[in-house]
């Protein structure tokens, strides 16, 4: 985890969810790139955060795109976030004794037929699922993210309030972490649309 650095956080709001990551890619203490996103769209309303070893970020992103496409073709419908979380879990557990060094975070809304309910989940590197009702954090700044999120988050935040909460949580947490930071990207998912914003952060 400390080889490349990086952190991801996801939060639940009122009929919305948000997921955010920092933008640093490092090689131990050396920063190689400051445009390395760790959150990727899975469907129009599900996003996946992949903090951890950067080679596995790219590989897992490719694998999940393939597996979700196969699911969509076979089932002739979009995958539900719960189902996708289990897909993530089993994909990681397949490599139980030679794992991908990634701690994924899933954030999304259930399908409109099922009420567009907010959903977030995180797993460890071998796929142990954690369905949280409030927020999940992963990556090198996880302990800092826990502290700030625990102080700032509250139930039933509107999309704009949720955006402010997750942004402040991430920025202040990564500023105390040497392996994360150099800007951030935030996605706020509502039933109507996804709003993506790139944040400026401290560049040290």
């Amino acid at each position: 985890m400390e080889l490349n650095g990086g952190s991801v956080v996801a939060m639940v709001g009122k009929n919305c969810v948000a997921i955010a990551s920092d933008l640093r890619l490092g090689n131990q203490a050396l920063t190689v790139a400051t445009n390395f996103e760790k959150v990727f769209p899975v469907t129009d309303r599900i996003y996946l955060g992949l903090p951890g070893l950067a080679t596995d970020v790219a590989t897992l992103r490719e694998r999940f795109r393939y597996r979700v496409n196969m699911y969509t073709i076979k089932e002739e419908r979009e995958i539900e976030p719960e189902t996708f979380a289990h897909l993530v879990s089993s994909t990681l557990y397949e490599k139980r004794f030679g794992p991908y060094f990634i701690e994924p975070v899933v954030a999304g809304l259930t399908s409109p037929e099922r009420g567009s309910k907010p959903f977030i989940a995180a797993t460890d590197l071998i796929g142990c699922l954690n369905f949280a009702k409030d927020f999940v954090v992963c990556g090198t700044a996880s302990s800092k993210l826990f502290g700030v999120a625990e102080g700032l988050w509250e139930p039933d935040l509107e999309p704009d309030e949720l955006f402010e909460t997750i942004s402040q949580t991430l920025l202040n947490a990564v500023d105390r972490d040497a392996f994360s930071g150099w800007g951030a990207i935030v996605h706020v998912i509502t039933p109507e649309k996804v709003v993506t914003r790139t944040l400026k952060g401290r560049m040290d």
């Binding site: 490349n4 890619l25 090689n27 190689v32 790139a33 445009n35 390395f36 070893l53 950067a54 080679t55 790219a58 590989t59």
Partner: peptide, 14 residues
């Protein structure tokens, strides 16, 4: 920028 682990970064300079 690509290293032996398969880490790839799109960069302006490297």
């Amino acid at each position: 920028w690509i290293d032996y682990l398969g880490t790839m970064a799109t960069v302006p300079f490297a």
